[in-house]
Structures are given as C-alpha cells and as structure tokens.
C-alpha cells in the first residue's frame, strides 16, 4: 500500500517539523513527570498514541453529526472514555507500570495534543487521514519522551528498562550515578537542549522575537 505524498506529510510531519511538543508546544504536561525511567515513558508514549489515533477516528466519523454547541463536551467525553478504557486495561494487564504512571494516565485526558488535534484536524478530515494524524502526533510526542527517559534512566540510575548498562568496573573506578537526573527539573532542561539542537538544524523554526 503506497502512501500518497499528502498522507506521508500527515504521518511524518509531527515527527520532525511539526512535532507536538517542541514545535506546537502541546502535551508537555504529562510528558515530563513520567520520564525518570524509560519503561513508563514508553508505556505513556504508546498510550497517548493509541488514544490520540482512536479519538481522532471517532470524532472524524462523527464530525458531521455533532451539534456545534456541545462540540467541546463531546470531544471531552470521547477522550475521557478512551482514557478510562486504557486505564482499566493497564490495571488488568500491566499493573506495575500502572502504579508508576499513577495519576498521569488520567491526565492524558487534558493532554493538549488530543484536544489540539481534534480541533485542528479530525473535525475537518476523513477517518483514515485522522487516524494517521493521530499516530503521527503520538509518535512525535513519543520519541521525545523516549529520548528523555533514555537519558535520565541511563545517567540517573545506570540502567535501561531495569537492566544494568553501566558496567561494574565504571562504578569501582569512582563513577557515580548522576542523582540530578532523577530529579524532575532535569526533564525540563533536557527538553530545552533538545529544542536547541532541533532548531539549530531547522533554522526556519527559530523565533525572531
């Protein structure tokens, strides 16, 4: 199945030039608090991708039937229901990760990315492009989370996904885990650095003000 250029743009755009976190400035809230280890960051990325994609599809399919007055409410209800479903599934099949994510699963509801994409895309496009847009934005959000989780876990605990990576010989030579990485503010600083690198590569995104 070959993707047309337009669909490619929808799917791949959010991965780089139209990234929800570092370009559109959406979805930062829940992004950072779960990134102290790689595993919850991954699960959160997958959860957000699934919810965004499916809420995009549902709203897109309903777009010609929704009364304008309750548009926001309908969007909120659809998103809240999907998130509750994801939460119930996590509690049943991935209990440990659910404990780590705690309230942040519920906070996916208010993740600006979802409402942002529903308003900007799903209400005006068909189900298949909306689905791809959801997947694209979810992945765009996801890779940032995974990078931060990767750096924080590796430098902060010396492990990745729980498996020790830094060899014992390093510790014996005096290397110590960077405790600062485990603290919340590091996630913010890391995003700042990612933005720095990203915008050095993509000069057109630099703000002139």
């Amino acid at each position: 199945m070959a993707l047309s250029n337009k669909t490619k743009a929808v799917l791949l755009g959010p991965l780089n030039k139209n990234n929800p976190i570092i370009v559109q400035v959406l979805g930062i809230c829940s992004a950072l608090a779960v990134t102290s280890k790689l595993e919850p960051a991954l699960v959160m990325a997958i959860a957000v991708t699934i919810v965004t994609a499916f809420s995009n599809v549902i709203i897109s399919m309903l777009r010609n039937t929704i009364p304008n007055r309750i548009r926001i409410i309908v969007q909120l209800v659809v998103v809240a229901t999907l998130v509750t479903l994801v939460s119930e599934v996590l509690k049943a099949f991935a209990y440990d990760v659910n404990k780590q994510l705690s309230v942040f699963v519920g906070l996916i509801v208010t993740n600006c990315i979802l409402m942002g994409r529903l308003e900007a895309f799903a209400l005006g496009n068909g189900p298949w492009p909306s689905f791809l847009d959801g997947i694209g934005n979810g992945l765009g959000y996801g890779w940032i989370l995974v990078v931060i989780g990767f750096v924080r876990e590796l430098l902060g605990s010396g492990t990745l996904l729980g498996y020790p990576i830094i060899p014992k010989s390093f510790y014996e030579a005096g290397y110590q885990n960077n405790g600062l990485m485990m603290l919340a503010p590091m996630a913010l600083l890391l995003i700042g650095v990612i933005i720095w690198i990203h915008r050095s590569q993509n000069k057109e995104l630099q703000e002139t003000a």
């Binding site: 919340a184 600083l189 700042g192 933005i195 915008r199 703000e207």
Partner: peptide, 23 residues
C-alpha cells in the same frame, strides 16, 4: 539569547532552573 534557543527553548531551561530552585 542564542537564536535556536530564543523563545521556547530558553523558557524551558528557565523553568527547569526555577524548578531546581523551588526544590
């Protein structure tokens, strides 16, 4: 502020530093 950091980038770094302060 260096060009790539202007606006969004420096705000993040600032927020991070303020967060460290609040700790």
């Amino acid at each position: 502020v260096p060009k790539p950091l202007k606006g969004l980038g420096i705000t993040f770094i600032l927020t991070g530093l303020m967060a460290l302060g609040f700790m």
